[in-house]
Design a protein around this nucleic acid. Structure first.
Lengths: 244, 244
DNA sequence: ACTTGACCTTGACGCAACGGCAAGGTTCTT
DNA sequence: AAGAACCTTGCCGTTGCGTCAAGGTCAAGT
């Protein structure tokens, strides 16, 4: 048989068969004088075995192992490992699908894919169009993605944010947008903010890791100078108490 | 932030982020005088979104589409398509696992992964150590892999093979191993073989496709000359009746 | 001042299992 | 004599980065 015939016979492409030769999975068969490969029935049986094994999901390396020692001992070993691997993949797919389903059920225009803890928090947040509040929500989704929500800090944040007094603080921060860095409102606002933050939150935020020097600068760069003063003091307080 | 900081923040590798720049998923950020990339918090939010989307299983191209028109319209579209794709993958994995399970439950030393129809046939076959019978069983697994079992021909074959008279025919074929091509036993054996084959089998085997010129030669090459005579006559009969 | 060590830069190869194309040779059929 | 349908080798493309290689930069410790 020529390569096209055996390929049609066992249901593979000629390209695949040549590939198997190339990577050494199968030895090159003899050639006719014109260079054509010649296959016999044993080759076909072999290729059929290869096809069945690859269709089961074995890699070519695994197929090679199985073909090498056909004691049947190795086969069961590889197959069990493969089954475990498939089980893991199946579980992963199911989890992704469940998260996908949650996303699709969500109303459009939502914040995108976020953890349930953060979703609850955002739902709790009072409706305000303060730019500072919007920024904060954005940073919360960032911390969510960074995996910061692990210690349940979103729950603490939720009770904090649900407080209507916080809205007023956001507005005081907004008011500092055009202010100079020596504006007298800076110090009292920083103090009021720190007073509102519950002690657990100071403890829950890691002083290293996320709140790292570069991040601090980047975050302050998002605010006007006077606002940055306030936010910077708050962050300093976090980092000091986090260490203590 | 430098690239290492933002990478740690959003839970990606620096290599991944540079890759995103390289393929144009994200624009290159500004540089410090020393060439270092500088990231801000908005970049972090963006990268966090990218991470969540890729973790859901979107390809980078799909992520780019979603990021491009953040109308939220495209997103649902892509997500539904993705979900359908995942559903297909899940089904495929489940089918593979079920076949794997069948294989693992099988006693060791079996013929390997075969269709249930062929498995039933092989179980039915009488115990004989005739080399010709062994060859036939091998070719049957080959036809199985080639998808020839579709028309239920294995069932017909089963009733044929279960006949103890067939064993005697195999032995007569074995006996021709060393015989010359003009051995007088050739003609009667071929006739007896054809007589045993039920008419349905002639009709069920396609004259084109599997039984193609190259295959015929290859198959005959497996036998000694006298045996090939017998098998060749049988095949000729198949091909003629298949056409008629 | 000098040396680590931990960053950063670009560039290029590697992977898994082939698909697809190029550029040419062979064989059988019109 | 020209197709059509085979075959040959060889090389690029796919996906999403990991992993060197070969260097430049910068803050800290000796």
């Amino acid at each position: 048989m020529r390569i096209g015939e055996i390929a049609a016979l066992v249901g593979l492409t000629t390209r695949a068969i040549r590939h198997y030769h190339h990577v050494g999975l199968l030895p090159e068969p003899e050639r006719r004088p014109n260079g054509y490969r010649v296959y016999n029935v044993r080759d076909a049986v072999l290729l059929a075995r290869v096809r069945r094994l690859t269709e089961l999901g074995l890699s070519l390396d695994e197929v090679r192992d199985v073909l090498a020692d056909d004691a049947g001992r190795e086969l069961a070993e590889v197959l069990e490992e493969l089954d475990a691997d498939l089980a893991r993949q199946e579980a992963a797919i199911r989890e992704r699908r469940s998260r996908l389903g949650a996303l699709l059920a969500e109303p459009p225009g939502a914040a995108g894919p976020v953890s349930p803890a953060l979703a609850a928090l955002l739902a709790q947040a009072p409706r305000t169009d303060s730019p500072s509040a919007a920024k904060d929500r954005e940073y919360l989704t960032l911390m969510d993605a960074a995996g910061a929500g692990g210690q349940g800090i979103f729950g603490v944040f939720g009770t904090l944010i649900a407080d209507p007094a916080v809205v007023e603080l956001y507005e005081r921060l907004d008011a500092l947008a055009e202010a100079p860095t020596d504006d007298p409102r800076i110090a009292p606002l920083a103090a009021d903010l720190m007073a509102v933050v519950p002690e657990e939150l100071f403890a829950a935020i890691p002083a290293d890791g996320v709140v790292v020097t570069g991040f601090r600068e980047a975050l302050l760069a998002e605010y006007t100078p006077a606002q940055a003063e306030v936010v910077g003091r708050l962050m300093d307080a976090f980092m000091e108490r986090g260490r203590g």
